[in-house]
């Protein structure tokens, strides 16, 4: 079975979805990603869906689940590069994905994660 590669990029994990997502693939991704976050102690997950043209409610829910699981493991999920048609579909399906950060592209997504890390570091300093 095909699997979606998960790349490590500093403190973050990068997932680029470049094939049509079917349900099995989505479930496998959720599992792999959870394992990988736990194994690497990553602080952020970037999911690049700029090549994704078709979504259904299952994929929408899967993104939500990945974000929730990641948050439990202290990693923030940022979905980047969503296409207009995909965004419209998700909104029409009522899946507005609250709790997931979004960014226009991978670069901005990384910047978002870095800002969060910096903010937390400052907080730690203040606490001490």
């Amino acid at each position: 079975m095909n699997r979606i590669p998960i790349l490590r990029l500093g403190q973050a994990l990068l997932v680029t979805i470049q094939v049509d997502m079917h349900d099995e693939l989505a479930l496998a991704l959720e599992e792999d990603l959870t394992q990988k976050i736990w194994a690497t102690g990553a602080r952020g997950v970037l999911i690049d869906i700029s090549a994704l043209e078709v979504v259904d409610s299952f994929i929408g829910r899967m993104l939500h689940a990945i974000a929730s699981v990641s948050r439990v493991l202290d990693a923030e999920t940022v979905v980047v590069g969503m296409r207009p048609a995909v965004a419209i579909t998700l909104v029409e399906l009522g899946l507005e994905l609250p709790g997931i950060r979004t960014a226009l592209d991978v670069e901005r997504g990384m910047a978002l994660l870095r800002r969060r890390d910096d903010a937390e570091a400052e907080g730690d300093v203040e606490r001490r």
Binding site: V80, M82, R108
Partner: peptide, 12 residues
């Protein structure tokens, strides 16, 4: 609201 939600999903 729908427009805004869709824009947010795209990261804007």
């Amino acid at each position: 609201l729908k427009t805004i939600a869709a824009a947010r999903l795209m990261g804007a």
